[in-house]
């Protein structure tokens, strides 16, 4: 028997597999497909203080082993998420969820986190710092250690729930951002968000995506994600949720060896709606194949 259990800031997960924010909605489309309660947790659709339609379409471009999306944080706003989406999700899913929040100002992050703090279902608040800071020249909070730390402090000040900062890979040195968040009081880190990418439609000779650029995800980015998890693990003591192109049980095991305490699965859900179930079902056999009896014991195992 392989022990799949893992822990994030005291929250015990039955297994490390978590669908990533933005690829699983609020679970509604997946609930008819398999019992969601097999999941370690669920990171819900990125939520902002106010409702957002998001970006113009086309929002999607295909790539080799991945896709680019520029959805633009379409969501019904935190009030509706807490009063409607979370209760609906609770009918399918009985475990604590991860609330993924975004903001365009420090105040918005804090307001969103404060509302999520009141939701009993929320076990962890995951803070997406990839958004542009509208009061800071539009530069993403996550690209500046001081801004990322400021968001961390603002969110920590309004909640007692564990706060995980979801880091953008579109930086020169992700380790310095990770350390700044840890020093500012983050309980954990989630990485990586999507890589900024682009495709051009050869027939129209113009960008495929209406917003020109978008976030690149899928198996193509797995080695980049794995490398960043590995580097950040060496630099911080707080737990890491690893993600980026994870599609198989073997990818999950690699991520954990690099230093992830839990692993999110994103793009894979979009092409195989049963991806998380398939990964969870094959984890014991794959772990056994590599002589692993407890996943928690292999976290960071690739480091000397």
């Amino acid at each position: 028997m392989v022990n799949l259990q893992t822990t994030l800031s005291g929250l015990v997960l039955d297994n490390p597999v978590i669908p990533a924010s933005g690829t699983f909605g609020f679970g509604e489309e997946f609930a008819p497909l398999y019992d969601l309660n097999i999941l370690g947790s669920i990171s819900i659709k990125g939520t902002t203080q106010n409702p957002r339609f998001g970006n113009p379409t086309p929002r999607i471009a295909e790539c080799t082993a991945g896709l680019i999306n520029s959805v633009g944080l379409q969501n019904p706003g935190v009030e509706k998420v807490v009063t409607q989406e979370l209760p609906r999700l609770a009918t399918h899913y009985k475990k604590p969820v991860i609330a993924n929040i975004s903001g365009f100002s420090i105040e918005e992050y804090a307001a969103c986190a404060a509302r999520m703090d009141q939701a009993e279902q929320v076990g962890i608040i995951e803070v997406n710092v990839s958004c542009p800071n509208v009061h800071g020249g539009g530069i993403s909070f996550g690209t500046d250690p001081a801004a990322a730390a400021a968001v961390t402090r603002a969110v920590k000040a309004v909640t007692d729930k564990p706060v995980y900062i979801k880091l953008t890979p579109n930086v020169t040195d992700i380790v310095s951002i990770a350390k700044a968040c840890e020093e500012a009081g983050a309980d954990g880190l989630a990485l990586i968000n999507t890589l900024l990418g682009m495709r051009i439609d050869l027939k129209r000779k113009k960008p495929v995506i209406a917003n020109k650029m978008g976030g690149f995800s899928g198996p193509a980015i797995f080695p980049v994600a794995l490398r960043m998890v590995y580097q950040v693990y060496e630099a911080v003591k707080i737990p890491i949720i690893g993600m980026g192109g994870v599609s198989t049980a073997d990818d999950v095991i690699e991520m954990m060896l690099a230093g992830a305490s839990a692993v999110q699965v994103g793009a894979a859900n979009l092409v195989n709606p049963w991806a998380c179930r398939d990964i969870i079902e094959s984890l014991p056999e794959r772990a056994q194949k590599y002589g692993i009896s407890s996943l928690a014991e292999i976290i960071g195992g690739a480091h000397i």
Partner: peptide
């Protein structure tokens, strides 16, 4: 018709605005 990511409602890649919301 719209460019789609998943095709089953998970990714919000193909949203449009209607009189009754997105």
């Amino acid at each position: 018709e719209e460019r789609m990511g998943c095709g089953f409602g998970a990714c919000m890649g193909c949203s449009c605005e209607t009189k009754y919301g997105a």
